[in-house]
Structures are given as structure tokens and as C-alpha cells.
Design a protein around this nucleic acid. Structure first.
Lengths: 143, 143
DNA sequence: ATATTTAATTAGAATAATTCTAATTATAAG
DNA sequence: CTTATAATTAGAATTATTCTAATTAAATAT
């Protein structure tokens, strides 16, 4: 486990705030997501965590991911009906799905652009969240 | 079945173009989507088609929907892990998911806005499709 | 520290949307 | 009208995810 002091505190505070416990499993799952900043599925997270904590179960990984998403420490991203992926990038951003490498790349989404998107809505619409997803080819290595 | 002559021709041409057949089932599924312009799931389409063609199977509905999507006569829309929904609105638009009514509302997406979104991408990224999804409350009746 | 309460983890079963399979039927072409 | 090809059908299979009930760990009170 290689959670930095800052990330450990971030987790502790988030758990505290929500009346939840900062268990070893939750630390591990959070740590794994921070270590390799790609967009792994629950199963990929499971594989990575198991390398260091072989007793963990898939159900626990799902539980940890759910808790981290609800505590807003990570984000959940969906593309069509593919397995849900998880990412620790909390800055506002869009996702680019590369058909070729089957990978996801974060794309910065400036505040003024998301404001413009919100402006498209009729009066009375309240927005929680905007998802912008590009689909195409990035001509990049998988990452 | 109430396909207008224009829609019937649209279907025939699309099938022709792709070396596929314009079967009764495909006509029915297309018709049902055009009749009530909401965002039904495959199962809802199945229910509606069955009212007029009780021998159709769910597998066929899935097949028809897939063919119509591939022929670009309808669009497929996904929200998180919910069942895929289908819509016959082919004009460029975004989707608003209302948490309260659990319905989807089309939102116009002007060309200049989608151009702006494309401009966010690094050089060399080729875009097939952009999905913009809002999530929140529309304070509307279900539709 | 130890006992008690409460929450989290675990393995495996259950669920649900979708896809696959193999047999049958419909459509188009010769 | 025959043949070839594609589509439909019912039901089984698949797969990501959630649920269940028992066990274990963490926090709190004694």
C-alpha cells in the first residue's frame, strides 16, 4: 500500500464525513486507482489489488468502488454497455474513447465550455452533472 | 403498421444499401419508434410491437434495433448501466436524464457548440461521434 | 484491555440485459 | 418453382453487477 499522507487523510476525512470506515480494503482500492492513472474496470482493479492483498473479494472491490464514488474521491465512467470504468481524476474533464486501442483518454473541459453547455437547457432544468464523451481514434499508444 | 410512404422508402433504401431485407418485423419496430417519440428500452419496444404482431420475439426486436442503429435510422442512447434506450431523432442533439421522472429529454445541440467541443481535442484525434449527457431534474411531466 | 455494538468483508448465489445457438420460416434470385 | 440466403424464433448462455447470510474487523463502552 502506497497511499501518500495527503491521500490517506483525504480518504479518512471522506469516510468520517459519511459515517463510514477507512478499512484496509478501501485504502488499497483507492491506492491502486491513484497509482496507475488509467481507467480500469472493477475486475482490473480486483486483479491489481489482489497482487498485494490476496484475500480480497470481488464483491468488496465493488463495495469499495461504490463508496469511493459516493464520497466523490473517484469518478465512474460508462461507455455504451461496456463494463464501468473508474478514474481518480476529479478535475472537470471529458472522455475520449479510442476505438482502436479500446482505451479512455481524459480531455480537459474548460469551465466556459461547460457553462455554454448548461446554457442550452430550457429554463427550470437543474443540472447535477454533465458528461461529454468523444468516440473515435486517438492514434496513440494504449494508456 | 403505420409507416408513412417516406419512412417506408427510407427503410427500404437503407436496407438495400446494406444488403439487408426490409422485413415486416423491421418495419414494425421502426414504425413503433416513430409513433411515440420517447426513448424506449428494447423491452418496451417489444411490448409495443407485440400489440400488433404477437408472434415477434425479443431476440428479433434486438436484431431489428441493431440493424436500424447500424443503418443510422435510429440512435442508441445509454445512461450509466441502465438498459439501452432507442430514439428516432436523428438531428444532432444531447440528452437530459431526469432523476425524478426517470425519463430522457432531447436537447438541441447547435453545430457551433459541437464544433467547440471538437476543438478541445489534441491534434490527431479523429472524432466519430460526440455524446453530451446532462443529468439532473427537469421539473416536467414524464414524456 | 475486554466486551459489545455496528459496519465491512467474504464466497457464492441471484439477477437482468443482452447475445448466442440451432432449427424453422420467409424472402429473393435463378 | 426451386434453390440459396437471410431472418426469425425460443430458449439457453453469457456477463457485469447486486444480493444474501455468515464471518470478521473496527469502534465504542465498560
Amino acid at each position: 500500500m502506497h497511499l501518500t499522507t495527503e491521500h490517506k487523510e483525504l480518504l479518512d476525512q471522506a469516510m468520517e464525513r459519511n459515517g463510514l470506515r477507512a478499512t484496509r480494503q478501501r485504502e488499497q482500492v483507492f491506492s491502486v486507482l491513484l497509482q496507475k492513472r488509467d481507467h480500469p474496470t472493477a475486475d482490473e482493479v480486483f486483479q491489481r489489488v489482489r497482487a498485494e492483498m490476496d484475500s480480497i473479494s470481488l464483491a468488496t472491490v465493488y463495495n469499495c468502488l461504490e463508496v469511493l464514488v459516493e464520497s466523490r474521491l473517484i469518478r465512474q465512467v460508462n461507455f455504451e454497455r461496456e463494463p464501468t470504468r473508474y478514474c481518480p481524476n476529479l478535475t472537470q474533464h471529458a472522455h475520449f474513447y479510442c476505438n482502436q486501442s479500446n482505451s479512455v483518454i481524459d480531455v480537459d473541459l474548460p469551465l466556459d465550455v461547460s457553462q455554454q453547455l448548461k446554457a442550452l437547457l430550457p429554463a427550470g432544468f437543474e443540472v447535477d452533472h454533465i458528461e461529454v464523451a468523444f468516440n473515435g481514434c486517438s492514434h496513440q499508444q494504449t494508456r
